[in-house]
Nucleic acid binder design. Structure first.
Lengths: 198, 198
DNA sequence: TTTTATTGATTGAACGTTCAATAAACATAT
DNA sequence: ATATGTTTATTGAACGTTCAATCAATAAAA
């Protein structure tokens, strides 16, 4: 019973089903049969709209990255224009409720691992990594010398990723409250140094 | 041309070949054919010595975890028995040259991702995670109240994993010097707090 | 009638496992 | 020393399974 204008609906549906399938069974077992089943469509549809499995995985990663970016941009726009407030907004965006759901974290980690061997995923990954780093670096540079700012940015970026990674691996749900607190403390410790240079 | 006593040799050979294969092509493409080829043996040998592919992957992860553990224990034994020196030894062990080789980092990350869906790998993973955390926690508790020590341990564990993760993903080799420096700084910032509670 | 949407059986490739076959090394008996 | 049997080591073709991709068929909408 084909209705017209299904494309955007199906695309979204299939991306969601992909997240669900990866959450359930891991990227390695996220077969197109399983994904199609979760979306209540046939396998043929995937090739029809995404040209193949790879296209679907690509689109899924783009969506996850896109929503992370949007969440951060949104919070930064509403935050005061001080290094501390801006960096806090970045931290908050990374620990947004939407980002810390099991399926999103698992998908993220799966992409992280497979991005090492798929050049298109690697590109997406690196763009994202560098954006996080350079945003942090820019803000730290407003109150720290270059070298110090770079180290602080590297450290905070690593801390965020690490808290996230450990949250994804732990059996319990990520304690967002606590993770934010740890990241805030790191931020404040770095900013305190700024006084040394002021 | 069978010589006797090949078992330990083949086991080691195959584990090394597995690391190499994962480095080259990723866990998903590390087929037993490829692994056997890298070790210059036939595919049947893998089942013969490891009971199957899963057994080989299990053994590979055990070896990587084992060497990390040994490296840390070794450094800790040689270090002074102060919180600072002990934690520095743990940091150094995690950034040991052997651990930061590309193949080991890639394998680690691949296992991280797949451990979410393979209970035996997950067990190994969690034992390791918890050991790192509880060792850090124990040392921090020598100079910080419980809650503070837990947060510091969580933060440092996450920072180490994050630096490592970002090193694995970056196209360049991990800058061990810099990573250690960032982790040391975090450690010192946490220890400085200890004075507040003293 | 043409376009858009969808199905699902079919196809071919890739993969892990199995196993009969082979042979060197070792043990024991002659 | 020679012959015979047993264990250990290894191979690689054959097999069965799984999966992504394809495409002819179907049908609603325009």
């Amino acid at each position: 019973m084909p209705k017209l204008g299904m494309e955007p609906i199906r695309r979204h549906q299939l991306v969601q089903a992909t997240l669900q399938a990866i959450d359930e069974a891991g990227l390695a077992n996220a077969t197109i049969a399983r994904i199609a089943n979760r979306a209540n469509v046939s396998t043929g549809i995937i090739s029809h709209y995404f040209g193949g499995k790879e296209g679907l995985l690509d689109a899924t990663m783009r969506q996850v990255l896109g929503e992370l970016g949007k969440g951060i941009a949104h919070r930064r726009a509403r935050a005061e224009d001080s290094p501390r407030a801006q960096i806090r907004a970045i931290i908050d965006g990374n620990f947004d409720e939407h980002q810390v759901s099991r399926s999103v974290m698992k998908t993220w980690l799966a992409f992280w691992a497979s991005s090492m061997h798929r050049s298109n995923l690697q590109r997406l990954q690196q763009v994202n990594d560098r954006r996080l780093y350079s945003n942090l670096c820019f803000q730290f540079r407003r109150c720290l010398p270059r070298q110090e700012a770079q180290n602080s940015a590297r450290g905070l970026a690593a801390l965020i990723d690490g808290l996230w990674l450990r949250g994804a691996l732990a059996s319990k749900t990520l304690d967002v409250e606590r993770a934010r607190h740890i990241a805030y403390d790191y931020l404040d410790a770095q900013l305190q140094r700024a006084d040394t240079f002021a």
